[in-house]
């Protein structure tokens, strides 16, 4: 019988993320740890280097607006059809944060290389893009296996972040967490040195020995802290539990157009201060 893993609070998870940490975080989709983002902002973490795997949305805009991020690496930050990300836009236009532009599959491939313990990985496409011209950490070599030489191909360095975190549907008392089809969360956990997880529900049993759930489970071997946080992804979605609150996001985008509006949003939503009407 494996040892049971103690639950932490979301504030304890946030406290494990030091200033200057190198994070890699999944895109805003089912399983975004918004409650943990709020706790990080309350804790005042600074100078983070964040790789969004492969794109950012609300959690990127919140951390940027709150001044937590020094460098962002991503293939895009937006709210899709709901609108553009105002704090991201302003921070890049003013130079307040450093940006390393990428393209989605290059980030996935780099995290997969991290998972495999190899220093880099080749990837097709990208040649001719200015994304490549501005990335002095990406290289182009000729395919060593090409008959007759030639066949240039891009190499990207592996990504092994200090920490990744996300919100999962279930966690069990042994520290295993179930992410289902969100397999990139498992890839991230395998590549990261530490993985922190907030979970929607507690699972009464061992996820690693349940034949129907084990393929969607991440072993506690990779996980250094779990907090039970119902509704931990809201106002974003958690598939099977709740949908994205589109009105909340539209209102956020409108309010966060200005620094003052963003501060008022944080005050109300993150710091929980009552605001006079």
């Amino acid at each position: 019988m494996p040892a049971t893993a103690p639950m932490m609070s979301v504030e304890e998870l946030a406290a494990r993320i030091p200033d200057g940490a190198h994070l890699a975080l999944s895109k805003d989709d089912s399983g975004t740890a918004i409650a943990l983002i709020h706790a990080m902002i309350r804790g005042g973490v600074k100078n983070l280097h964040v790789v969004y795997v492969p794109v950012g949305g609300l959690m990127a805009d919140l951390l940027i607006g709150a001044g937590c991020i020094a460098t962002i690496e991503c293939s895009g930050v937006s709210f899709g059809e709901l609108g553009l990300a105002p704090r991201f836009r302003d921070a890049v236009q003013s130079g307040a944060i450093r940006i390393k532009d990428a393209t989605c599959p290059a980030i996935y491939a780099a995290v997969q290389a991290g998972e495999r313990g190899i220093p880099f990985t080749p990837i097709r496409g990208i040649l001719g893009s200015d994304v490549l011209s501005y990335r002095d950490d990406w290289k182009v070599v000729d395919n060593p296996f090409a008959a007759g030489g030639g066949d240039p191909i891009v190499l990207v360095p592996a990504i092994n972040p200090d920490i990744t975190f996300f919100h999962a549907r279930w966690g069990d008392r042994y520290g295993n967490v179930w992410v289902g089809k969100r397999r990139e969360l498992a890839t991230l956990a395998h590549a990261a040195r530490e993985t922190l997880v907030t979970v929607e529900d507690l699972y009464d049993g061992n996820l690693m020995t349940d034949e129907t759930l084990v393929a969607g489970t991440i072993s506690s071997l990779y996980i250094s802290g779990v907090a039970h946080v119902p509704h931990g992804a809201k106002p974003l979605n958690l598939d099977g539990c709740y949908d994205i609150d589109r009105k909340h996001i539209r209102d956020y985008i409108r309010e966060a157009q200005t620094v003052e509006g963003f501060a008022a949003y944080l005050d109300r939503t993150v710091f929980g201060n009552k605001v006079a009407a």
Binding site: V55, S75, Q93
Partner: peptide
Amino acid sequence: YPKMKVRLPGSFGSAF
């Protein structure tokens, strides 16, 4: 680039 007059979301998967 990089401090652009108008910053758009980013290249996403297009380069590939």
